[in-house]
Every structure is written in C-alpha cells, then in structure tokens.
Design a protein around this nucleic acid. Structure first.
Lengths: 210, 210
DNA sequence: ATAACACTAACCCTTTAGGGGGTATTTTTT
DNA sequence: AAAAAATACCCCCTAAAGGGTTAGTGTTAT
C-alpha cells in the first residue's frame, strides 16, 4: 500500500508530439500520472474539472484562448492547482504576465523531461521551479539601477511618490517640512529632466530607479 | 592546457566554520577556486578588488555593514561580479531587497555545497539560481490577486493611476472622455472603500490588484 | 581645510487636478 | 429579459502641483 495517491497531471498543449512525448516520459519515469491531455484550453475548459488535476502543464501559443489568459480561468476553476508554463516564449513581459496571472513555474520547450518531472515535484513541495534563463529574467526585472543620479533622500521621496503619496503625506512620513519636500521634488525633476509627477514616475519605472 | 582559468570565488561570511567548509568543498569538488575569504564586508572592502573575483558568496548578518547594503558597493567596485546570497534570512522583504540591490542568486544556509557549486555554474552561464522556497517567494511577490472586486476597465484605470497618470492622460490613452474616467475612479473608490488616489494605490499594492 | 554635495527650509507666484454629488444612455454579458 | 459594465454629462469647491529663488547647516571626500 502506497502512502498517497500519485499526483495527477494534465497537459494542455497543441503540439501532439510534445503532448505524447511528455505524457509517456512522465508516466514511465516518475511517480506521477498524466490523467488527461488537451490540444487547447478551449477544449479543456468544460472537462478539466473532472480530471481533478494537481498540476497543469500549460502551453501559451494555442488555437483559441492563449495560455496567459487561460491561467486565471483555470485557477478559478481549480483554486488549488499548480500551473507550470511550458512554452517557446521567454520574453520578460510574457514571463511576468504568466507569473502575475498565477503560474507557479515556467520552462522553455527545450527543457528535458527529467527537469519537468523535478519541477512537478518542486511545485508540489511549495517551490517555484524555473529554467535558469527564466529565473535570470525574473531577477533582472526586480533589480534597481545602480547608477541612479538621485541621492538617497531623493530616491526615498520618488519612491513615496510612486506609491501615490502627496507632498504633505511625504512630509509627515519623513518628519520634514512640506517646503523641503517641494525642494527635493524640484531637484528630482531637474535631474530626471521632467516636469510632472507622471513623467517622473514613468522615468523612474523605465530606469528602475525605485 | 586548460581552456580557461577556473572561475575565482570569494566568500564573505562571519562564521568561520561555514567559510572553511564551503571553501574546502568548492576547492576539492569543483573546477572553481576560492581565492579569498573574509569575515565581514568591512574587512573585505579594501582588499577584494585585488582578488578579482568572478563570483562572491555573501552572507547578510555580519559585523559592521550588512550584506544587503554591501551589494551595491561591491557591484560598484566590481561591476562584472556575480553575487550569490547565502543566509539564514528568507523573508520576502529581505529576498527582494537583495535582488533589487543587485544579487544574482539567493540560497539559505542549509543548502548543500553541491547546490552552491551548481549555483556558481548557473550564474556564470547567465542563470538566476535560487532555493526552491526563495523562488516561490519571488514568484508570489509577482502574483496578482485573482479575486479583485474591480472590473477589467477599473483595473486598467487603477493601473494607470499607479503609474502616475492623471485623469486627462488616462482619458487620452483609453480614448474615452475625462468624465468617464472620473466615473470609473469614483466607482473604484467605492469598491476599495477609499477616498483618495494615495489610498487607492495603497490598497491596490497591498492587495496586489494591479 | 576646504570645496562639493546633501539636506533642510522659506518666500513668492499661477495653474491644474482631485474629490463628491447626481443622472442617464449604450453596450456587453449572463 | 435582466444585470453588469462602460460610457458621458452636469453641478460644486478645495487641495495639490509646479516654477522661481535664496539660504543656512551638516557631511563627506580629497
């Protein structure tokens, strides 16, 4: 008698070869079972609840609803499910969208089946498995610009501005006068070559100053 | 004759046992060499440039300057260096601060030396190595709330507000009237139970609505 | 020690944006 | 057919933003 049922996997992927390849490999080399596969999310939508999957392996480019948009719908249908993206896309934008929408892992399609099996184990244990190059892009997206032209105080104030604070709230929070805040903001605008809050935030975000 | 010089590693870590343990293991089981070790950043500061490291393994809690604050200074001294954090801390806040400051990888101290050696290989090849639990926290920090009370349009407008756009800019961007934007904002305020932009942004960020 | 930078604060000024109250039509989704 | 979402208009008043200028006091690096 085994300790618990094998985790249930569903693969949603339009390429039949990939679908069958991963299915075979997962079923034959791991303690997990692929309970169903679908060629698109639109086909999966009505039936996947009955599969009761623990993990979904999801493509992005598919006929009909794309994988990115499918994630929140799948999470609503199956709140406990872990979704691992398996796709050819690895632009920072798409990776971050997938993770923002609720994906728990992200791999590119050249990934060996053994790594996918490790990834299934990893999500089930509360990890966040990613390809090295994906992890790199995620980390890069979090990094600040080390060559900011702003001083510490200016950076601090710009950060409060990006959080929507107004001059008086900033003054209160930093225990300084509102006129001092104004001076800092004026200096920030000069350094960033802007003349409004909106543009300052835009420059701050695009140059990762905060 | 070997293809290239072994990558040069420096360890900055106040615990002598850990320092010596990892040094031994890296030097004896991998193609990398630990060229120097330091018990604190303040000791390392003046001499590390001469070590010319490719990778620094960095603790956070140390006498003097902590590891988080040390990262940008090290990056300024050695712009090409990869920094891998090795620490007992794994709160989301500290992890994100370390990565924002320029760390390329992050591990907790119970990590096996073999994983650290893999991590060194990984950063040198352009990856972003992390412990599974660290990767999980990084991914969680990027995820949106799937149960937002806001409609698509409201979410879109709130997102533009968080980017510092004012009513007229939002109206222009979405090709709608400024009065319509006002209406959406009023509805957002009611749903979020706030009555100012700053509070809306605060609620949006703390509940990951955008 | 001394110059440069950072942080602080004050005065002047005008323009723009924000927030609250309502009502109402059209479009989309269920 | 009913509900929800998106659109748009009117009224009101206060608060906030932006620009210009000057200046004292620390701190830090050369």
């Amino acid at each position: 008698m085994q300790n618990q049922a094998a985790a249930r996997i569903v693969i949603i992927e339009d390429d039949q070869t990939i679908r069958e390849g991963y299915t075979y490999l997962i079923n034959h080399t791991s303690p997990y079972q692929v309970v169903n596969t679908y060629p698109s999310f639109d086909v999966a939508r009505q039936k996947i609840s009955k599969d009761n999957p623990d993990v979904i392996i999801l493509d992005i480019q598919m006929p009909g609803t794309n994988g990115i948009d499918a994630i929140p719908i799948l999470k609503k249908l199956l709140p406990q499910v872990y979704i691992i993206m398996l796709t050819v896309y690895e632009t920072e934008k798409i990776i971050l969208e997938a993770l923002a929408n609720g994906a728990s892992g992200y791999f590119t399609k050249n990934t060996a089946a053994s790594k996918i099996i490790e990834a299934i184990k990893d999500v089930l244990q509360g990890g966040g498995p990613m390809s090295p190059s994906v992890a790199k892009k995620v980390i890069t997206s979090l990094q600040k610009n080390p060559d900011s032209p702003l001083t510490k105080r200016e950076t601090q104030i710009l950060s409060l501005i990006t959080r929507g604070k107004d001059r008086s709230q900033i003054a209160n929070e930093l225990f300084i006068e509102i006129e001092t805040v104004k001076t800092h903001i004026k200096n920030i605008y000069v350094k960033l070559n802007v003349n409004s809050k909106a543009d300052a935030i835009k420059v701050a975000k695009s140059n990762r100053l905060v």
